[in-house]
């Protein structure tokens, strides 16, 4: 393998990081090296959402994102959501609705649910199904995930109104 290495610098969950990476490495590889395992590779083809990361506000499949491409950009991962020690309303709703079994898919679903609720604070069940249809859960926790998103949405709207 002809090894091309490069230096990159980006913002990770609000803090600057700089490191030297292999040209072939994807962002999941790099996050793993940084001790973050919430974004995880499963299908490796952009089909399951287990590797979801938010890059400049947009949800991306980490397994398809070469790490060099995040140079100079802002990356958010699941680990950023409870940085202050408190769970996000979506995370709390996932727990309360029992929206996880093995949990391998959970970070991806939680991040996507955040994206959904940011764009649409009161999604219908059909809208939830549509928005989350790119994430797979082999344990098929789908009914509970839908419930969790609705619960989070109503709590967030209530908090907004208060």
């Amino acid at each position: 393998m002809t090894e091309v290495r490069c230096d990159i610098a980006f913002t990770l969950n609000g803090a600057p990081v700089a490191l030297n990476i292999g040209g072939h490495e994807n962002i999941v590889d790099v996050l793993k090296r940084l001790g973050l395992s919430g974004a995880r590779e499963s299908c490796g083809q952009g089909l399951c959402g287990c590797c979801t990361v938010i890059i400049d506000g947009v949800a991306e499949s980490g397994c398809l994102t070469l790490a060099q491409l995040v140079d100079g950009r802002s990356v958010q991962t699941i680990e950023g959501l409870d940085a202050d020690g408190a769970l996000s309303p979506v995370q709390q709703a996932f727990i309360d609705a029992g929206a996880l079994q093995c949990g391998f898919c959970a970070p991806g679903f939680v991040l996507m649910s955040h994206q959904l609720l940011a764009a649409n604070p009161d999604p219908s069940e059909a809208e939830i199904r549509d928005y989350l249809s790119g994430n797979l859960c082999r344990c098929a926790t789908y009914p509970e995930i839908i419930k969790a998103v609705r619960l989070a949405a109503s709590r967030m709207r209530a908090a907004q109104a208060a």
Partner: peptide, 23 residues
């Protein structure tokens, strides 16, 4: 009783331990 999974918090924060993560 409907006790939520004990490890719920670790799982929704992406910090649960899987062999997948071990180096």
């Amino acid at each position: 009783r409907d006790v939520p999974r004990l490890e719920s918090r670790q799982k929704v924060t992406g910090r649960a331990e899987y062999t997948h993560n071990i180096t």
